[in-house]
């Protein structure tokens, strides 16, 4: 972890005059944001009271992020479970509108996210613009999927007998998502949106080194009519939080995309309660560019869906 006192100005070689007493005082002091967790629709600090410094790609101190603890992870699972019943039984149309609303909120904050990607990731303004646009569009994409996925993945089964027989996908429940480490906005969006589009609720461990975009995103989620607890964001270390999420009996599935070297350990742990596991894909470490495909299809929705088949006799 970087030194908290290693300020940007010092890193740039110092613009000040060097004399303590004569330091320049701005005409108006900027109000900095305190970065906290997003849990059950609220923004609490870590119950542990811990935080860690977050720096830009050039080592400049940007903010302190909450360092989520095992108990925060537990609280997040409880919040996600509580939200599951309501979210999964919303109509697909309603979920689609809420996901679209998230896109609307992000669009309005484009500048903030572009600045964040430039400062935090060291992207050029053009690249940052492209990534933010893709992230906004990703929410629109999945907003459109909510009321189509059941038609695409479900259907009637022509059984050999006088029975009505129908299969439809249902959300698996609470999904613990290890978001990509090097793709803090578009990658994060790309793994979270498909999980909640289908009615699951999510506990997300964000990128450890670049967690600020996730909390900025949470501000958009919190103002999009997304019920509290549907998405819970934990900033901190995947290696610390992961074992507890993987072993948690109330977690139904894991997305190990950003779990790094711990992925195998978490998959082994998940076996105890037969938690569904999505292993890290080839683009897991590829940065935001790995997530630019505008049509990712159903691949990230299917692993978190169950198929329910209902039989009923036909007769008079």
């Amino acid at each position: 972890m970087a030194d908290r006192r290693h300020t940007g100005k010092a890193a740039k070689g110092g613009e000040g005059t060097g004399g303590g007493a004569a330091a320049r005082v701005p005409a108006r002091l900027a109000v900095r944001k305190t970065y906290k967790l997003y849990l059950g629709g609220a923004f609490p600090r870590s119950e542990s009271g811990r935080s860690y410094p977050v720096t830009s790609s050039s080592g400049q101190h940007l903010a302190n992020a909450a360092l989520a603890s095992r108990k925060d992870a537990r609280d997040a699972v409880a919040a996600a479970r509580k939200a599951f019943g309501g979210w999964s039984t919303r109509t697909a149309y309603n979920r689609g509108q809420i996901l679209y609303r998230i896109a609307e909120m992000l669009e309005g904050r484009r500048a903030q996210f572009v600045d964040r990607a430039v400062d935090g990731q060291g992207l050029s303004r053009a690249d940052a613009d492209r990534v933010v646009s893709a992230a906004v569009d990703r929410w629109v994409y999945y907003a459109g999927w909510t009321d189509k996925v059941a038609q695409v993945l479900g259907g009637a089964n022509p059984v050999s007998g006088p029975y009505y027989n129908h299969s439809a996908p249902e959300p698996t429940g609470v999904v613990a998502v290890f978001a990509p480490q090097n793709a803090p906005l578009l990658g994060l969006t790309s793994v979270v949106a498909p999980v909640i589009a289908t009615g699951n609720t999510a506990v997300v461990v964000t990128s450890e080194s670049a967690p600020l975009a996730a909390i900025d995103l949470a501000e958009a989620l919190a103002t999009s009519d997304l019920p509290g607890g549907v998405v819970n964001l934990l900033t901190g270390r995947a290696a610390e939080l992961g074992p507890h999420l993987a072993a948690h009996a109330d977690v139904n599935a894991l997305d190990l995309t950003g779990a790094g070297e711990s992925a195998v350990e978490f998959e082994e742990t998940a076996a105890t309660t037969l938690t569904r596991v999505l292993r890290p894909g080839p683009g897991a470490d590829g940065g935001e560019d790995a997530w630019l495909d505008p049509d990712p299809g159903t691949a990230r929705m299917k692993p978190f869906l169950e198929t329910k088949t209902v039989w009923h006799p036909v007769g008079i």
């Binding site: 059984v159 029975y163 027989n165 198929t307 329910k308 088949t309 039989w311 009923h312 006799p313």
Partner: peptide, 18 residues
């Protein structure tokens, strides 16, 4: 549950996911 039998039980068919 993955299979719901309504007004019937223990029915199986190759076309029906289980």
């Amino acid at each position: 549950a993955g299979v719901i039998w309504s007004n019937t039980f223990n029915k199986f068919d190759p076309t029906s996911p289980f």
